[in-house]
Every structure is written in C-alpha cells, then in structure tokens.
C-alpha cells in the first residue's frame, strides 16, 4: 500500500510539473506576451514600447530561466533602472527595500506571484475563488449524490420494469444536456420575463455573499443535473448486477421481503462502483463549474479561470492549472483507495 501511494504521489508531481511547463510555455509565446504588455501599458503602444515594457518587467529573458524563477529553483531577476537608479525585481514587492527582498521567490517558497488582471496576490484570488466554488460544490453534492443514488437504486432493483425504463430515459436525457443548454433553458423558463414564472434569479452574483433559495437554485441544479444522470446510470448498472447475484437469490428463497433484500443485502455492494464514479466526476464537474459560473456570473474558481485565460494572466493561470490538476489527481487517488477499502476482494500488491 505504501509503495503504491508513493508511486502515485510521484506520478502526481511529475504530471503537475509537465503541465506547468506546457502552460508556462504556451502563455509565454511572443504574441501572448505582447498581449500582456498591451493590456498593462495601453492598447495603442508601439512595438518598441512593447519591447521596453517586457524588458522592464523581466519578461524578455529565456522562458526556461523564467520558469525556474517561477518554480523557485533559480534566483528571481533584479534590474537597476539606469535613469533613476532604483532597483526592481521579481522578488521586490511594492514598498519593499531591495536589500530586504529574498533572492528566491517561487512556488517552492510559497510565493505564487501577482495577478496582472486583479492586481492582487495570486494566492488571494485563487483562495477566494476556491472558497466560493466550494460553497457551490457543496450544494451540488448535497443535491446530486443522494438524487443520483436513489434514482439508480430504484431503477436497478427491478430491471426492465416501467420505473426502470422511465428513470433510465430521464438519466440519458440529463447526460445529453450540457450545462450551457440546461442553464439557458432554466433561465428562460424560471427567470425570464417572457415566460413569466420568475421563481428564481437568472444571476448568482448576489449568492456570493448570501446564498438564498432564489439565487442559488438554478446554478446548483444546472451542475447537478449533468452529473446526476451519469452517476444514476452507473448505480443502476451496478445494482442490476448485484440483484442477479447468488446471495440475493438465496435471501429471496429464504423468504426475506423485497425491501429488506434491497436495503440490507444489495445496497452496500451496489454502492461500491458509484463511489468511484462520483470521485471521477470531479474533473467533469470542474468543467461544469466553469460554464455555470460564467453563465450565472458567479465569481468563483471557474470564473477566475476564464478571466485568467482570457487575459493571459500567466501566474494566475499557472496557479489555476496546478489547483485543477491537483483536484483531478487527488480525486483519482481517493477513488482508487476507496475502491480497495470498500471492496475487500481487491488488494493492491
């Protein structure tokens, strides 16, 4: 078990390393740097001014060296302005004496850098986004997991029955509805003046401070619905498999009542597979979060990703990708470990 964990952690670090290299390389291509310069120093500046700005802010050096600085294995750049004699540098923050600044300031030292869009430390922006998204995800889980499990178990306990057919069709419909479609339909039906129901708000901006039933229902339902169908189908498949097992037949022959068979004998074994599926749904949910937060204007992690990517905010984008890779890989790990823990027939050698 220990060697398995270590191997997985090593893969994780390697994956995160490769990903950050790719993201760093792509965001630091010449046209992207020019875009940053123009967004920071004004859209109408000349090519010479762009080059000057890039040099002044430490962008005009080899990508690999700057990646090392970002990572914290190479000392941060410093530069003395010829006209004023002031020293600036990567590690010299606003209002800091150049002499006090540390020579290394990268991710390994816990410094995630400054966001160029939000003009604040990256760690603060990401932290705030994660907190808001955490709130959203909590409610999504509260709605999605019980809903999906109940649907799946009800559909799977009697395979081929009308209830099974109805619920299975409903699950297929929800898996075929991407978030931007269900979100648009929900807003049109429940929040537009054209239909006139106006039960909920079409924007979740006010939910950032205070989530209420009116402003949080639509985003939560939009994300939950897409994942729900998939988990329900997996639960159904696992439930139908369990219901044909030998020990269920034995219980039935013993004269155990049907509700008892489902609740006491079948359920626990049937829930092993859905657990894995729920864990593996996290990366997909992340996608849904980005779409829903953009659609409902909820300024969480997904919204931050779109802002960072749209404005080529290099350090914010790197932090965002590290966090999302971390989420994806950690959930994979938990799903593997949980699978072994729940299913005593499997042992990792």
């Amino acid at each position: 078990m220990m060697s398995f964990l270590i191997r997985r952690l090593a893969t994780m670090v390697l994956t995160a390393f490769c990903l950050t290299v790719v993201v760093f390389a792509l965001t630091n291509l010449a046209p992207n740097l020019e875009k940053i310069a123009k967004s920071q120093a004004g859209a109408r500046i000349s090519d010479a001014e762009v080059t000057g700005w890039l040099e002044k802010n430490g962008y005009a050096r080899p990508t690999l060296v700057r990646y090392g600085e970002w990572l914290g294995v190479l000392p941060g750049w410093t530069r003395t302005d010829e006209a004023t004699g002031r020293e600036t540098g990567r590690c010299i923050l606003q209002g800091m004496e150049p002499a006090d600044a540390p020579s290394f300031c990268g991710v390994l030292q816990g410094e995630w850098g400054q966001s160029t869009v939000f003009k604040r430390p990256v760690i603060e922006v990401v932290g705030r986004g994660l907190a808001l998204t955490g709130k959203l995800m909590f409610w999504v889980m509260v709605v999605m997991v019980p809903g999906a499990l109940i649907t799946g178990v009800l559909a799977g306990m009697r395979e081929g029955s009308k209830l099974d057919r109805t619920l299975s069709t409903a699950s297929i419909v929800t898996t075929a509805t991407p978030e931007y479609v269900s979100g648009v339909v929900f807003i049109a039906v429940f929040a537009s003046s054209a239909v006139g129901l106006r039960w909920f708000n079409g924007s979740a901006t006010s939910a950032m401070d205070q989530a209420t039933f009116a402003n949080f229902t639509l985003p939560v339902m939009t994300i939950a619905l897409y994942g729900m169908g998939y988990i329900a189908r997996m639960t159904r498949a696992s439930m139908t498999e369990v219901m044909t097992a030998q020990y269920i037949r034995t219980a039935r022959l013993k004269g155990v009542s049907f509700p008892n068979i489902v609740m006491k004998h079948a359920l626990r074994n049937a829930l092993i597979a859905p657990f894995t599926v729920i864990m593996l749904q996290f990366p997909w949910l992340l996608n849904g979060v980005v779409i829903v937060e953009t659609l409902f204007n909820y300024k969480g992690f997904g919204w931050t990703l779109v802002e960072a990517a749209g404005n080529n905010d290099i350090e914010l984008l790197l932090a965002v990708s590290v966090v999302s890779v971390f989420v994806v890989l950690v959930t994979q790990l938990i799903s593997d470990i949980g699978y072994v823990y729940l299913n005593p027939r499997i042992r990792i050698s």
Binding site: L26, T27, P31, P283, L286, A309, N312, V325, V328
Partner: peptide, 29 residues
C-alpha cells in the same frame, strides 16, 4: 498512458483557451 493522462488532467476549457486564442493561432501551433 502517461501522456494520455497528462492531457486528460487538463481542464478542457483551459486547454481550449490555451490552444484556440488568436495569439496562439498566430504562432502556428
């Protein structure tokens, strides 16, 4: 498999933003 998992670990939307913006198209990637 490692390469495949690497691509899969990217959030799809981030990947799109990295590959499809006009600036990247300009570089010819």
């Amino acid at each position: 498999s490692f390469l495949a998992n690497l691509v899969l670990a990217f959030p799809v939307i981030l990947l799109f933003y990295l590959l499809v913006t006009p600036e990247i198209v300009q570089t010819g990637i």
